[in-house]
Design a binder for these strands. Structure first.
Length: 245
DNA sequence: AAGATTGGCAACCGCTGTGTC
DNA sequence: CGACACAGCGGTTGCCAATCT
């Protein structure tokens, strides 16, 4: 959201990304993977710098990017990590699966900086790993809803999907953790991802068959695992045939 | 209701690190 | 060893929406 989207510089577009550009980038990476950021935009039909594409992918389009409010534990982790590491945002981000350095940096400057000034973090407040994992696990439902929301955003012609976050959430969360996901679901029915982890699993399996997902929990690892296994789906045809874009 | 201010955040810029020739 | 290209990082900008006056 910086310069107006019409602003051009040496033929390269700047500013906010359009839905069409998002589609192009996702589609290209889905089909060919990430091989050279500086060359990719040209082949993907994007008038963007490689840097811009990389940033857009990493901070926004990558399937496992966790968006939305930071949990209390995440805040604590950031505060503690920052007290140890300083402004090494990528290092801090590595402690928070799904969060990007950019998002953490923004969050720090907008919220946590003041808090850190008021209440400096000391060693005893260090959250332990298991708590973070539990919190992250508990956030899965929220993560999935965010993923669905994003898909709703980038596929505007499609009616909105929802993710039932009350009864089915705890149910699917616990069952998916402890049981094998049913891989026999009908993957052709990706137009209706439904409201269960399995449904969404199937959906993402087709949407994101590439990219090394840095996932930190069982459900998303299952996603990633399946994503690696099935790479024969083409996002373009997916969009064209299933969503009429 | 309207203008001013503030907060949030996507995205750009410049620098540095790393790999290759 | 130096030059070059590319990837990644951190600082910063500036738009938009929410809040305040």
């Amino acid at each position: 959201m910086r310069a107006p989207s019409c602003e051009m510089n040496r033929g390269l577009k700047k500013g906010s990304w359009s839905l069409e550009e998002d589609h192009k980038l996702i589609s290209y990476i889905n089909r060919y993977g990430i091989w050279n950021w500086s060359q990719m935009p040209k082949f993907a039909g994007l008038w963007r710098s490689g840097k811009s594409c990389r940033l857009r992918w990493i901070n926004y389009l990558k399937p496992n990017v966790k968006r939305g409010n930071f949990s209390k534990e995440e805040d604590e982790t950031i505060l503690h990590s920052h007290s140890l590491l300083g402004n090494r945002w990528s290092a801090i981000a590595s402690k928070l699966p799904g969060r990007t350095d950019n998002e953490i940096k923004n969050h720090w400057h907008t919220c946590l900086k003041k808090r850190a000034t008021r209440n400096p973090v000391h060693e005893t407040t260090k959250p332990n790993g298991s708590n973070i994992s539990l919190e992250f696990e508990a956030n899965n439902v929220h993560n999935i809803q965010q993923l669905v929301n994003h898909i709703n955003d980038i596929i505007p012609s499609r009616s909105s999907w929802t993710y039932d976050d009350d009864s089915s959430s705890s149910n699917s969360s616990s069952t998916s953790t402890d049981q094998e996901v049913d891989f026999k679901a009908d993957y052709n029915d990706i137009g209706s991802p439904g409201s269960t982890f399995d449904d969404l699993h199937c959906f993402w399996k087709q949407l994101c068959p590439i990219e090394n997902l840095e996932l930190g929990n069982n459900h998303q690892n299952l996603f990633a695992e399946s994503i690696f296994q099935e790479s024969n789906h083409d996002l373009n045809s997916f969009y064209n045939h299933d969503f009429g874009i």
